[in-house]
Design a binder for these strands. Sequence first.
DNA 1: TAGTTTTATGTAATTTTACTACAGAATGGA
DNA 2: TCCATTCTGTAGTAAAATTACATAAAACTA
Lengths: 303, 303
Amino acid sequence: MHGEPHDDERGMRPDLRDAGGRNIIEIIRAMRAELRKSDRKVADVVLKDPQRILNATVGETATLAEVSQPTVLRFAMAIGCKGFQDFKIRLAQSLAFGTPATHSVLLDTDDPETVAEKIFEYTMTSLDWARSHLDRTALRKAIDILAQARTIEFFGFGASGIVARDAQQKFPLFGVPCGAQLDSHQQIMIASMMKQGDVAFVISNTGTTRSIIEIARIARANGAAVICLTGSESPLTSYCDVALIVETLENTNMYTPTISRIAALVVIDVLSTSVAMRRPIEDQARIHNMKRQLSDMRKVQPI
Amino acid sequence: MHGEPHDDERGMRPDLRDAGGRNIIEIIRAMRAELRKSDRKVADVVLKDPQRILNATVGETATLAEVSQPTVLRFAMAIGCKGFQDFKIRLAQSLAFGTPATHSVLLDTDDPETVAEKIFEYTMTSLDWARSHLDRTALRKAIDILAQARTIEFFGFGASGIVARDAQQKFPLFGVPCGAQLDSHQQIMIASMMKQGDVAFVISNTGTTRSIIEIARIARANGAAVICLTGSESPLTSYCDVALIVETLENTNMYTPTISRIAALVVIDVLSTSVAMRRPIEDQARIHNMKRQLSDMRKVQPI
DNA sequence: TAGTTTTATGTAATTTTACTACAGAATGGA
DNA sequence: TCCATTCTGTAGTAAAATTACATAAAACTA
């Protein structure tokens, strides 16, 4: 432990270092042409499957690129890294932004573990996508409306019905009576009886289901505020005061599970939590109590 | 079928599971309280200056935290990483997002946008945690059992009831008649009538609800296979053939939404998809048709 | 073209780093 | 208090990254 190893950057601001050459993948791509022949082989395997390299050692990388280990090291140096470790760290940071989509495609040959990995990965990526595409203005408006509601009715069919039921179960957070209508006759009845001060919360992934559009129209005609939670701009949105559009990466692969309901559930979490936070402290304490009581009850016997 | 698109023909790495980790910093923060004393020292230096740790070795980290090197390793394992290298990679990815220190703990003063960011972030982090802690052997067993079932009944209360209902809606993927029992009287009736070849799928986050344990016991006594989906090792697991334990970062903050049901839904996705993939091609085509018909129907009028 | 220099790449040794086995210390329960 | 369990450090081992060096391939000169 004598002297200071590699201390050429001691005076340098470490924050500035990665701000300068941020995306290492872009750097590799840019430098690819002027690299040594063998280094280029390494560059190619990195560009082809960067995720793979993240968990690889020098040796594995060398094998993949069909070069020797020192070549991998020289490659790392050539693109401006201090060593292989440093290279991997930079690569990891570059990948964090957007993982290439090829990863989550399910194959018939995948074993259960791989299927699990891919579905989880895909779900998380989709949530990230939904988050970044959420309309903040609409969100704010929806919270305003919900916070002033006298009652809230959630409407939905099928998978969206699940979301409606889940939302309804959060009534302690919303602080007002909540209902969930999953049957279309009931839906029409309830919608017809709504009035000023009530909120109709309409959930439909496609936004094209006729009867659900009808619900929005009726509720609105009766003076209720209408909020919809849907997957894209659609006929439904035009009948609503606020449209919460939750975009997801739903692709058409038959194996791809429906991610939309999960994104919708998270949005419901956001809404209910935000509404609860608006309420006075004493109410929040009451919720806390209720939660504890529920937890106690579970240990004995519900119903 | 020669794997033409696969470049891995040289040495099949079964180790290709990527560490596409979400925000490890969030995980550390969430787990800090329940860590060992020495591990917490490590957690603190990581949280204090993550950037510093990125360029540090195990030895350096140990010195900074004033603990021994193995402790640093154990810390990495404790937070769900495969080793120190893996930990650094994950840390690098987390830092790339530029997460400020105050994340994920909801404050009364947060505006709706911040609340949304935090809840999404927390949800994704928790999913990542659940993914990395999923018991692959149990998963495989569960799939085996479900694929051979004659009928499947899903049991659950409250939030777990939502999950049960969702699972039941996936019956086309499971390929056999599925039921969802959310009422405790119905549950007992149905459980009593189950027999060999049937599968009871019991969902309970706590795993301590008496009546749900009773369901597992009855179903099993009647010769049905019993699978449970729960949050931790509990009395329930001992009555089951397979226990799918989905760990989440549920902390006790009153604002923290229940993440467990979302993780459970994803696990259901994995199960249903895997079971569907086991089935013969012609069945898969039938599912495809059904999906299209459903999508067509939506545009007309469901009722 | 042959010889010479320069550059590129691989082999093998070396250093560093990550990881494991084990044993002593601390903690908690009876 | 003792016993069992859980922590944590010491010391040793395996593995990975890095360096030194030698050979092969270009590139250049005469």
